[in-house]
Design a protein around this nucleic acid. Structure first.
Lengths: 334, 334
DNA sequence: CGACCCTATTGCCACGTTGCAATCAACGTT
DNA sequence: AACGTTGATTGCAACGTGGCAATAGGGTCG
């Protein structure tokens, strides 16, 4: 409890510096001394004070993760993978929720946390690219999502346009004549929804189909209740869609629920496909078709981007853009 | 970028100490000086080095959270609430995943994190109470779950026995003749499953019913796949149950899927009830009845327990045991 | 037997911050 | 005009650690 190098040193009858050596570079200490010190360490219950160590070394071993919500399945699963992989590298994840608030994102990016993190992985929601570029300072920053390049921040994402195109193509291939897009967010700065919308439109154009604005239904959040609400609106149309590409699995699960409540058969009356491949979708009835981003790969690559800058020459590297793979998963809703 | 008090002081033409005062106790500094210093701060982009500040003050403002998995809905939602509420208190959450590994739990508890956290909230899985008691040192520790009292660690949980009894009673009240319990974990040290099993048995006894070991079906994890697998086994019994109390919502969702695949109607052929009230259960088809622990209350109380010891006299307080409320939520599976 | 070398150990300092107490300036009062 | 009081500012020291370079100790070789 609260014992320090000095206490251990006194007990073992050696200098503070020798105890420090035992902890950090055991081979430099004679075996007999080392054992005496180790005994003293366990007797005093000594634990290195990391604050002091970090002050001295200038590194904290902590990587920040700024996401809208830990409680939502997609970000929860991603956070879990990141924590696991960070642990393998000897890092601890410090998690912050932005709830999409711009001022919170700005705060975290500007390094206001004050050198507590050696790197930051952020999934921005409300911040414009140019602002991110200005804010990212001397700390390695990885931006989750495809946005315009900015400063030295690296970017990491799946190819949202391609993935959305494939999902829509898939609906068309199984016979959809009136596919809808559930999830555009015209009011948000975050470009992900815009990219998925573009992919959806491209697939329609490719197939020689007309785009109908009524089938592009905007949402204010990406959760189940919004999917439910939006689906009700689609079902109320004069010509309801016979397939829906939902921009997230959560939206899709809300939509699925609405369809079932409305007596629609899925996929016979209306087919559904989501995006994210969250655990819930695999066990819903019917199980949810989806675009599955390689979450494991995202986590691994994100940490690698940080490591490159941390152990390499931070400013020497230009802003990089990394794309993680994705696959289409066919299940029962399509 | 790496600017420190000294740099700001030089630019503003004041002493280091005055800059520190501006940051920490602005009212003690004359208005003119303060403004000059603030200008210098924003010009240099100064951010306090928290490692140094914490070294000086002995507190880090970080609270550790050790849970089996962030990616699972229940813990994800709880972690989200904790992060939010900790933020309100000026704390940051440092999250670690134990994956239920005893050695990882031991490591975190023993304060090996080295004074990086001012307190620790831990949901132990594999550690015995006596070991927890020995390990919890001078840092305030809150244990999630009802286990035997140990050392100075506080305990926080819902009344699992009562909740399980109510859930089972509810199944009986709607006519169940052969209610099963899905979720006992005989091999785990964690007592939660045992408590829920006790509540289930008590409700049976209360109703004058016989306990049938075949209806108590053990699992090795608390996730959907295990629920699915266990439900298949129940359905294969000579006399399959007509109601199932699942120890977690995830197990229940897996079981629901299995029941639907097997052509059973829910709740007509078999009723289901879960535990945790995760978001998924509200939007599944049919929606999942469940025991809803007051997660918000759990998070709030957990942090309060830490705060009491942190701002009060740490050792003066005896180990406390706090029970958070729960309610039964009737939905479509029962 | 002495000079030398290698290894094990040590003392000193700095990392950036804040608590404490001392200093300094200015103003009001007698 | 001298003194006391208040408020603003400052210097010093220390939090616990690790880098550096010097030192002490022990053994080898000429």
């Amino acid at each position: 409890m609260g014992s320090k190098l000095k206490d251990v040193a006194a007990l073992a009858g050696v200098s503070v510096r020798t105890v420090s050596n035992v902890v950090n570079n055991p081979s430099a200490v004679a075996v007999a001394t080392r054992e005496r010190v180790l005994a003293a360490i366990s007797e005093t219950g000594y634990r290195p004070n990391l604050a002091a160590r970090y002050l001295r070394q200038g590194r904290t071993g902590q990587i920040g993760l700024a996401i809208p919500e830990v409680g939502s399945p997609y970000f929860g699963e991603l956070a879990g993978l990141l924590i696991e992989k960070a642990h393998e590298r000897g890092w601890t994840m410090l998690i912050d929720q932005t709830a999409g608030r711009a001022e919170r994102e700005r705060y975290l990016l500007s390094g206001a946390e004050g050198h507590v993190v050696d790197g930051l992985i952020i999934s921005p929601w409300s911040l414009a690219p140019e602002e991110i570029g200005q804010l990212a300072g001397s700390t390695p920053v990885v931006v989750l999502g495809e946005i315009d390049p900015c400063g030295t921040a690296d970017h990491l994402a799946v190819d949202n346009v391609a993935a959305a195109r494939e999902a829509t193509r898939h609906l068309l291939a199984r016979g959809a004549r009136r596919p809808a897009a559930l999830g555009p967010q015209p009011t948000h700065r975050n470009g992900t929804a815009a990219l998925r919308l573009r992919g959806y439109r491209e697939a329609l154009t490719e197939a020689g189909m007309r785009q109908d604005p009524a089938y592009e239904i905007a949402v204010t959040s990406l959760h189940r209740p919004e999917g439910h609400r939006a689906m009700l609106r689609l079902m109320g149309l004069e010509n309801p869609p016979d397939a829906v590409f939902c921009f997230t699995d959560e939206l899709a699960l809300g939509a699925l629920r609405a369809a079932r409540e409305g007596g629609l058969r899925v996929p016979e009356d209306v087919a559904l496909i989501g995006f994210d491949d969250i655990e819930d979708g695999r066990y819903s009835t019917p199980s949810l078709s989806t675009v599955s981003p390689d979450k494991d790969g995202l986590a691994e690559r994100g940490l690698q981007l940080i490591a490159d800058r941390l152990y390499g020459r931070l400013d020497a590297l230009p802003a990089r853009r990394v794309t993680a793979p994705h696959v289409l998963v066919h299940r029962e809703t399509s």
